[in-house]
Design a protein around this nucleic acid. Structure first.
Lengths: 229, 229
DNA sequence: CGTGCTTTTGAATAGTATCAAGGCCGGTGG
DNA sequence: CCACCGGCCTTGATACTATTCAAAAGCACG
């Protein structure tokens, strides 16, 4: 994993800046942006810190979380290469969420003023980002429904499949690395229940566990659990 | 309640079209758009119907819902004058949600192609709508956390306060009209539990019930229930 | 090879969903 | 005008599920 400082050289072709801005603007942002490296488990955005701009994930996987009642933490989503962090806060005063690195991460930061100018002068960028919001909103509402309507077993199944998708290309097929607390916070349950659910899945030969490494063996079983039609 | 057909005459000053488009574009959209009247309980958007464009609420209150496991319905949010319906589906294939009228509603419809052109030629419109998405996303994620972490009593309290905000100016202060099923679907619980929670609130003189009319008496009590600090 | 942290498991408790029955109210037709 | 029907709402009893508390096992790190 290596920092890329100049946008023109960037390999992240899904980056909204590179995809939608004029060459002039790509160069301008390239000069203004900062690029940071975060080690696994390091914080990227602090909850309730002032909104300074947008973060674009160049490489790695990060969790976006929010702390609620009794300091219970809820992971709201997970993002990776090509994703954006901080857009929820955009237009607001403080980031309503925090973010930290699940794997080592490289992240580009662009300040508010630069973004605003870029938006007004690159309509396609704004439109593209609007579509990004749209898909995020769909995902968030789907997740809302899942958490409201599924039981523990179903929620865990659903999130195992989600993580498998997110982590594809980072480890071998069907395998990913996440600790129990994070998986519980993502699923919206506590670690004890998660542990019980995982143990059951192991017993039924649906997954295999190796410390924090989870491997899905029987996809179909998990699929049927969440969409029994 | 009376349909306004010409955008220039429209009293909804928060409409993103009127607020952000050139006069030329306001006129253009004014001619192209359709304006519909929906009676209370009538459907505005059907779940899984093809995405044809965006709906702008000129007057009234509508619920946005989505059907899940075992035909359980979840109300995802409630929108009113100045709000937008269908933006989640935008960029996708089918509307992932349905919408129907909680009060009589007047709704303006603008088709996809017109919207797309308008977005590219009115950067401020796109930016404004992007901010709308951003605030919707914040709201959705706040709701996610609430549903995941609150108990029934707290969820009901939270949603009573939410409805009170949404319905302000439609009935007298602190009063709103909604049936039990809708309130349960909004809260993410079943009608029996809702009924119990409401009964307790009545006993404790926190609210008053008059058929489907709910009046909040003790705001502070409800507030403390959801943010006990 | 301790020490402290995470994970797993068990048992008791609390909370929520479901089932069933009855009440209330509005509408319809005799 | 009243009796009856059907839908919505409320309440109670019960079954189920999830949470909490406690304890022990596993593992990571110095």
């Amino acid at each position: 994993m290596k920092k890329i400082n100049v946008c023109i050289d960037c390999t992240v072709k899904s980056c909204p800046i590179i995809k939608n801005c004029t060459d002039e603007w790509i160069n301008k942002i390239s000069k203004i942006k900062d690029t940071y490296f975060y080690k696994k488990d390091q914080n990227i955005v602090y909850e309730n810190s002032p909104v300074l701009g947008l973060y674009f994930v160049q490489d790695g996987i990060a969790k976006i979380y929010s702390t609620g009642i009794n300091d219970k933490s809820q992971i709201v989503r997970i993002t990776k290469t090509g994703g954006i962090i901080g857009h929820r806060g955009y237009g607001g005063d403080k980031y309503p969420i925090g973010a930290s690195a699940l794997t080592d991460c490289i992240v580009c930061f662009v300040d508010n003023d630069t973004m605003y100018e870029a938006f007004l002068e690159n309509p396609k960028l704004t439109f593209d980002l609007m579509m990004y919001y749209s898909s995020e909103l769909r995902a968030s509402e789907a997740k809302l429904k899942n958490i409201a309507q599924m039981n523990v077993r179903e929620k865990v199944a659903s999130n195992l499949l989600y993580l498998n998708k997110v982590f594809s290309n980072y480890f071998s097929e069907g395998t990913f690395l996440i600790n129990r607390k994070d998986l519980a916070d993502l699923t919206g349950i506590n670690t004890e229940q998660l542990s019980r659910a995982l143990s059951e899945f192991v017993k039924d030969k649906v997954i295999e566990l190796n410390k924090n490494e989870i491997t899905i063996i029987n996809y179909e079983y998990l699929q049927n659990l969440i969409a029994p039609f």
